[in-house]
Design a binder for these strands. Sequence first.
DNA 1: GCGATTTGACCGGA
DNA 2: TCCGGTCAAATCGC
Length: 304
Amino acid sequence: MQQPLLLLHHHCSGEQQLAHSLVGEALRALNVALSVMKQQQQPAAALAAPPLIMSPGSTDDSKATIATTTARGGNKRWRSSSSSAMGSSSSWVSLTTVPYEDGYEWRKYGKKRINGASHTRNYFRCTYRDDTGCQATKHVQQQPQGDGAICSDPPVFQVTYNNRHTCCNSRSAAMNDVKQEEAQGVLPLPPLVEALAFERTLPLPCSQPEPVSSSFPTTTSSMQQLCGAVLTTEHYCHGDTAATPSATTATSPYISGDSCDYEYSAGDMMAQMAAAEAPAAGDHDVDPFYDLELFLLCDSFKDY
DNA sequence: GCGATTTGACCGGA
DNA sequence: TCCGGTCAAATCGC
């Protein structure tokens, strides 16, 4: 959202490059922050293993939870390859709030209303299947919201992956490395949000907001002020599907098609930022942002 | 025109 | 027979 505002007031290439750089840093910081908050919601003991990714070979009790959840559709089967020896399973489950942005490129090939599920299930396969024979597939199922859920609560999606990618496109290969890090208990950064996607989907208001001040906004209030000038939460949350801007590819950070039961809105981000701001100043034990400069230099929360 | 998505039909396992 | 997963023709959008 900041990108068009910054670029609006910088016309020479040098300034635009700086603006791009600033937006990149801001997005990276935001992704790190979201990663931190995501981890804070997990029990500390769960950090030893990837908390949101479970394989069918796992003996973790949490597996039962996932299996039960899956059973809402009446099917408890774990699909696995014939050589599903311990540690080499070809099916695994991930719970995430960003199911369509996992670093791989997917092509949607089916959509199904599942018995007992309030949301449709979307089926994806690797974009490069025809070219490389890659057999990777996944399906995405939005979990039902709790009774106390509010609009800004990010919904949780259960993503079931089948078969590993065998395609050799560079992006997928890089993400394979990330998967390996996850398997080793390293906390990777979440996938970066495409700034251009925001530019494409978020039109500027008719009346332009005041120019952004030279000091980069880092507080929730200033971000709210800036974001509020661009769009309102309600516009993108539970709005009319037909009137809601949606991406045309599954690789967009937005949810595509009429399966768009939810889109990650500015209100959601601000709500999470507000939560991150909650610790009192000086409380360095619980405030992960007390040294922002060092924070931005780190490649992962673990490094920080 | 081409690639991606949609959606009803079909298949196969339980 | 039911239901999840996949196919493929129709449709959409760039």
